[in-house]
Simulated scan of single mutants.
Amino acid sequence: MLERRHFVGAVLGSMFISDPAAAQTPAAKAGGSAQLELGNAALSAVPAAQRLNELGPENAAMAACAGLWDVTETVWDKPGGDPVTTTGLVAERRMIGAYLQEVIRPASDTSSRDIKRIDYLSFQRVEGRWKYVSIEMRAPVGIMPAYSFDRGDGKSVVLAHDSFAIAGGGSDVAGQMLRMNTVVTRDGPDRDVKNQHFILSDGAGTVWLAHRYAYARRA
């Protein structure tokens, strides 16, 4: 991808060359270099906070995910447990600034009054890593922030969540802590997956795939 600073410098340098033969003279070459330096200097004068608040290549690519997606949700409530699959869900995705917002609801809920889950994903250009937060309406787990270690490989990113408590499956509150990561994988422009792996704070240290959201873009 052509970087903006190179584009600006090249345009500024070419604006002052009207005669192709003159471009070969030492004076013209010196003038072109001066204009290139002027373009780079002009760009560097832009405040870093303003420059890094622009989308950048990661978030600009993510903007292509906006739209409606059909969702298949699969849950494994324990290691080796039987999967429970839910269909008939829709994810509405849209960009809000540099953040991709995703709202999951039943396909029949066109007024978005029965929202099941909301999340936000964005590449934080100052830190050079992805940031993520999810809000689950179906369980009392609170707001769940997560972060990547780096920018990923362009196809997938691993997000490590802060630990959070779960109530437990019985009538009494168990108050057990849980660790989780979310792996977002893109399989082309029209399909992607979010896999969530759990580790209970029970001394066993067992990791299992507990949640999967499989997405297919609507035509």
Score class of each variant (00 low, 15 high):
Val90Thr: 12
Leu43Lys: 03
Pro145Cys: 02
Ile118Gly: 03
Tyr215Met: 01
Phe16Trp: 13
Cys65Gly: 00
Tyr215Cys: 05
Arg129Asp: 07
Thr25Gln: 03
Val11Lys: 15
Thr110His: 11
Ala61Met: 14
Asn40Cys: 07
Ile118Val: 08
Tyr99Gly: 01
Trp69Gln: 13
Ala27Ser: 00
Leu36Asp: 13
Gly152Phe: 00
Ala219Gly: 09
Ala139Cys: 04
Leu89Asn: 06
Gly9Pro: 05
Arg94Met: 04
Ser201Glu: 10
Ser14Ala: 12
Asp162Met: 10
Val157His: 03
Leu200Asp: 00
Ala49Gln: 15
His211Phe: 08
Val8Glu: 07
Gly205Leu: 04
Pro140Gly: 02
Gly142Ala: 02
Leu38Thr: 12
Glu136Asp: 07
Leu209Pro: 14
Ala45Arg: 10
Ala219Trp: 10
Asp119Gln: 10
Asp119Leu: 06
Leu52Glu: 15
Ala34Thr: 08
Arg5Val: 15
Thr87Arg: 15
Phe123Val: 08
Ser111Ile: 13
Leu43Cys: 14
Leu200Gln: 11
Ala48Glu: 11
Val141Tyr: 07
Gly81Pro: 15
Val90Leu: 10
Ala214Val: 06
Glu3Tyr: 01
Arg151Thr: 01
Cys65Val: 04
Asp192Pro: 05
Ile166Gln: 08
Pro83Lys: 02
Tyr147Leu: 03
Val157Tyr: 04
Ala66Leu: 04
Gly169Trp: 03
Arg93Gly: 03
